[in-house]
Amino acid sequence: MQQKELNQYMVNLEPIGKGVYGIVYLAYDQLEKRRVAIKELENLERATHEAYVMKQCGISKFLPTFYDFFENNGKAYIVMEYVKGETFGENFDSHSKKRDEKLSVQITINILKGLEVFHKTGFYHDDIKPKNVMIHNDDPETVKIIDFNSSKKIENVGLMKKDLSDTAQMCIFLINGTVPEPVDKAEIHNRKLKSILFKALNTDAGDNYNSLKEFIAELKEFR
């Protein structure tokens, strides 16, 4: 496999991930003696924003660890923990395998736990969807939220609820293998669980969850 050296990193030139704004490569940190992921972005402003947000994150097993940020030949590079596994798919209308409700809830709770830590940076993710959450061998403990370049400042509680609603959609996606249109066609056998998820979707009304912690507490009954 072709490689190139960037600063202290030996980078494999075969991408392991591609997004709208960046390409992710597997690399080896020659100083720290560890495998890392390096995200290459051409938009320096967007890259700087994403690096800043990742650097502010506290420690969570459900968020990738930020290591380094640098520029080279007009491009920006974010160095982070290498995450083993795969994403759940692309968008909510794509199709994936169906998972049982208990497993889906366990995964959903861990996404919410990662977001709890992330929100302490003062930002919300704003792009929770299948392509931005990874897992290895369907083990809920390996869940990782990725791709923070769409994140925005939390200026009011309503904005935070966007992540809450998107995570509820993730749970529906996991159970159904897609999010049907309209969403009330979703097949969720446990009526109480369906009621909880649909309450979380309702971001515009007062009758929904005021925090991720409150949503997690309601879901714990089903894990």
Rank of each mutant, 00 (worst) to 15 (best):
D147Y: 05
L159E: 15
M80P: 01
E86D: 08
S151L: 14
G122E: 13
V133I: 15
K113G: 08
A186D: 11
Y82S: 11
C171L: 03
M160V: 01
N202F: 14
F123A: 05
N156W: 14
L201Y: 05
E90G: 12
L103R: 06
K162H: 12
E141I: 10
N149G: 04
G206I: 12
N132Q: 06
S151Q: 11
D166E: 13
V83G: 02
E155Y: 08
P130A: 07
D138R: 04
K199I: 06
F173S: 00
G122M: 02
N73A: 12
L115D: 00
S195M: 06
V105I: 13
N132V: 00
M160H: 01
K185N: 08
E71D: 07
I172R: 02
V157G: 01
I128Y: 05
F118H: 02
V143N: 10
E116M: 15
I128E: 02
V179C: 06
G206A: 12
K97D: 09
P180Q: 08
Q169V: 03
D100W: 09
M160G: 07
D166K: 10
H95D: 14
K75P: 14
P180C: 09
D100L: 10
G114A: 09
K144P: 05
I128T: 01
N132F: 08
K162T: 13
V133P: 00
L201H: 02
Y77I: 13
L164G: 00
H125K: 10
T203Y: 14
E116G: 01
H189L: 12
D93F: 09
K162A: 06
I172E: 02
N210I: 05
C171S: 06
E101I: 15
H95C: 08
T167N: 07
Q106F: 04
M170I: 10
H119M: 09
N149Q: 13
E90I: 08
D163A: 05
I109H: 01
K161M: 03
F88D: 03
D139V: 14
V133C: 11
D126P: 02
Y209G: 00
D147M: 12
Q169G: 08
A200L: 11
I175D: 02
S104V: 13
D139A: 14
L174D: 00
G89Y: 06
D204L: 08
Y67L: 01
K75D: 13
E101K: 08
K97F: 12
A76R: 00
K75F: 11
V105P: 06
D147A: 11
V83C: 11
V83K: 03
D184C: 03
I78Q: 03
Y124Q: 01
V179A: 02
L193E: 03
N190S: 08
G85M: 07
N149I: 13
F69H: 09
L201A: 02
N72A: 14
E81R: 03
P130Y: 07
K161I: 12
A186C: 05
R191M: 11
L103K: 09
K131T: 11
E187A: 13
A168H: 00
K97S: 12
I175Q: 03
M160C: 07
